[in-house]
């Protein structure tokens, strides 16, 4: 384990388990023995250091992020599908009650934030909210538990919170972005959308290029703001948890517990903000100006 100094410990905890492609001729440095091996051919493999992970470039996948986000998504869908199948209009059980509370909460967000008519938006918001919430909640598991377990199983790096990985947050944000563009085209038509891009905020033909620049940047910042806000909050919180974990074990609880309690709020709030903003952006896509 390459985690002898605090800096290494932190870096180690912030590195995803990366499976990717290393080109032929790549010089792999063993992190323990510092032995150098030159790859004979292009090969897919797990990165053994941050440098290797970085050198893999785009052709790599964070196995931990994907695995945990899929697990959380499946947990959400299984749980809710189970309730949906057994849903009764009579007296609901505990689980159904919880699910209905969540559904009503999301319906409230959509009612307040979305001014068009689209039956697709509310289930979309539910998916975003619960999925992000579940992924964020993973952060409340102490930072060393699961990485240590993974290490025991022979996995060098393991980061369990998908929302502390920008890939995780950008993946969702890009999905939302495509929906925004899709609905802009669908509701306003290509002409209407082009007109909106060209003539807002300044309704004068001379200012069309300026408007276009402004609007396109405005649209592009939407997924950026969504993804970076969630990622930033979660990542910063994670770093603080890791820093606290550097304290002697008998002292950790003094900071760990308040921070975790505070993070119950942050976790929920960030999921709520992500959902609400997505709904608001989609609402704007439905509104004619």
């Amino acid at each position: 384990m390459a985690a002898d100094t605090p800096v290494e410990y932190i870096q180690h905890h912030l590195q995803n388990l990366t499976y990717g492609k290393l080109p032929a001729g790549y010089e792999r440095v063993d992190p323990y023995t510092e032995e150098v091996v030159v790859l004979q051919e292009t090969s897919w493999t797990f990165a053994r250091s941050s440098v290797e992970a970085a050198d893999m470039g785009f052709m790599a996948i964070h196995v931990d992020t994907m695995g945990w986000s899929l697990a959380m998504g499946l947990l959400f869908l299984t749980l809710f599908r189970l309730v949906a199948k057994r849903a009764t209009s009579g007296q609901p059980g505990g689980l159904q009650n919880m699910v209905e509370m969540t559904v009503e909460f999301v319906q409230g967000i959509v009612r307040d934030g979305f001014h068009g008519k689209n039956p697709f938006i509310a289930p979309l918001a539910l998916t975003i909210f619960v999925w992000v919430l579940l992924m964020n909640t993973l952060k409340l598991i102490p930072v060393d538990f699961i990485p240590s377990l993974a290490q025991f199983l022979g996995l060098e790096y393991f980061k369990i919170v998908p929302t502390t990985d920008p890939n995780g947050t950008f993946g969702i944000a890009i999905g939302v972005f495509f929906l925004i563009i899709y609905y802009n085209f669908k509701v306003k038509g290509p002409g209407g959308f082009a007109k909106e891009l060209s003539f807002t905020p300044f309704n004068h033909w001379l200012l069309v290029p300026f408007n276009l620049l402004l609007e396109i940047i405005g649209h592009l910042t939407k997924p950026l703001s969504l993804a970076l806000r969630l990622f930033g909050n979660m990542y910063a919180g994670e770093v603080v948890f890791i820093l606290i974990a550097l304290l002697p074990f008998w002292l950790q609880w003094t900071l760990n517990v308040p921070w975790a309690i505070f993070h119950i709020l942050v976790v929920t709030l960030q999921a709520f903000i992500f959902t609400t903003l997505s709904v608001v952006y989609l609402s704007q896509a439905h509104e004619e100006h």
Partner: peptide
Amino acid sequence: NINLTLIGQAIAFAIFVWFCVKYV
């Protein structure tokens, strides 16, 4: 690092949304 995870995540998101809209 930004990598394929991004696309995988987007695909997973799309599938989850589809399932939720249709069955949940």
